[in-house]
Amino acid sequence: MSTPTTPLTRKDFLSSVDPRWCPGCGCYAVLQKITSVMPTLGIPRENFAVISGIGCSSRFPYYTNTYGFHTIHGRAPTVATGLKLANPDLSVWVITGDGDGLSIGGNHFIHLMRRNVDLKIILFNNQIYGLTKGQASPTTLPGTKTKTTPTGVFDRQMAPMAMAIAAGATFAARAHDSDGELLTEVMTAAAAHKGIAFVEVMLNCVIFNDAAMDPMTNKATRSENSIRLRHGQPIVFGADNNKGIRLNNMTPEIANVSEAKDILRHDIHAEDTSLAFSLAQFAHPKMPTPFGIFRQVTGPVYEDNFKSTGEADLDKLFKSGTSWVEKG
């Protein structure tokens, strides 16, 4: 199986287990996309490992015919890091959710970003705890009534994209489950990135948080409520791309494209994180929610620090320090 005579196809990456997500769940679209991208990467199937935590999305490894590890709640980044350090040849994909990755696993999330381990982390953000049947997550919109917030969520929303960029993510992108082209672009770029590749996928939980992201994902309203980020292009949105983003004394604001001369231009390769970080804080309804690649820069990869050097001679090692010979 290591050197297939025929190129790998999506089918090669689907396990015999039928996905068991709710009908209409956004997870299906991401599974479809990732298993479509994997065969195109020129990596033998046995070199893929999919590592997840706990939650609806973390069922993912069972559905891919690769090596997989369904670990414990919030801790997938730690297992993935150990696996990658033990075997740097692997293409390691972490699957997590907003509860798993940002709440119980928030600490690991930050450290994964700052270390720049060469692996992918896909955050399925449906802004709700689905597996435990509908409690508020760190990304649930304030005011939302859930089983644990009968009067509405009063915690402020966590901004995973801003957190990832602040922690030094070298690749950070956002997609959503109802735009296939966007998902393909983002997943392909993430797969090609050397270093940590963070992808936030906003997806719909049809059962416990239906239509929460509708303003940004619905075809009828998304052009007004979201920005499609494209490298080198002006940061614009609206029905005819008639609105753009400019800075007013460092504060981003919406301007009319036909009048403003200072519309910001997107630059994913900027070393400075200011623009990416600023965009990462945009969120509907205050500002349009950006989609696409926020940041893509190169940097030293974590696992390169662990290369074995020197001769592995136990006898020499044992005698290091002060030792002496006794003749008996």
Partner: peptide, 10 residues
């Protein structure tokens, strides 16, 4: 966690 990952990795 990293040790469990490394154990999985051989």
């Amino acid at each position: 966690g990293s040790a469990v990952g490394a154990a999985f990795g051989g």
